[in-house]
Amino acid sequence: MTYFLALETSCDETAAAVFTDGLTVKSSVVASQTDLHARFGGVVPEIASRAHLRNLLPVIDEAVRKAGITLADVGCVAVHNTPGLVGALLVGVTAAKALAVALGVPLVAVNHVAGHIYACRMAAGRDIFPCLGLVVSGGHTALFRCDTALSLNLLGGTRDDAAGEAFDKVAAILGLGFPGGPAVEREAAAGDPKAFAFPRAFASDPRLEFSFSGLKTAVLYACHGQDVRQATPPPPGKKRADLAASFQEAVVDALAVKCRQALEQTGLTRLAVGGGVSANKRLRAKLQAACDRAGAELFIPPMNLCTDNAAMAALAVEKWRVGQFAPPDLDAEPNFIGS
């Protein structure tokens, strides 16, 4: 049996995990930086990079101890090297390279977005490929055709904001705090999703793309009218809940429609969903309905595997099996380039 030690530092979670080549997760430790970024209403790259450097060794140490092994037992090091914030990725990539040098073991580089989809395979405990992959988070909103765990072809993505980013910005407009996803969902529970007719970009268009910045502006105008210079968040009450519910419905509708179109266009019969926004209950219900209509099977991992973590880097096992090791001069690659 081979133990893998995996690192994740692509955005604002510092994470390490230990798993085996049989895909058993022995430990998964995540140090969240949410508190550090909250007052800025979004992730500040320099703050994230600093926190990764402070947190990474304690997180690695805890993951190794919780797995009940020592570093000498580690047979392979894995790291998410793309996509993400470059300064944040560099901390994880450098640490992973140092571990591989110190321990004399191979290094495997994992695409973070592919990892999100692979989390569905881990949670399912069986093969889910080929499948349609939807990754929806604060940094990504994209659809992929995944013929195998290691082949990810981008079908389409967002032209502007990621869905999670739109949740954060609308939460700021409504004065609901950061992170926006859970805050908007809580507020929406008491609201009417049909109260405001917000736009669903490209809804009747076959192209598999998303756009959320117009929606965000529509919420702003619905909240304050056209004159937003003196904008202060609305007080708690029916209107705020209705705005939250109608916004959430518009995002969820756009995601569900595009998934259904993609299933029809590709003929794929499985949908695997990952990323922090997939924690949204309304999204889960709508995606289930879309899959039912398309005759497809839906895979969404439990919460701890949806948000950023290092256990989803178990995709490294697939690469390790076929000898796809990273070069010693592995770099952090901020932009998504496919896998």
């Binding site: 600093r50 570093l71 560099l90 450098t94 140092a98």
Partner: peptide
């Protein structure tokens, strides 16, 4: 350089920890 220093310190700390 913040980035340069973080790379150097990450390398040094991780090597010292692992070795």
């Amino acid at each position: 350089s913040y980035t340069g220093l973080r790379v150097g310190l990450t390398a040094a700390k991780t090597l010292a920890y692992a070795l």
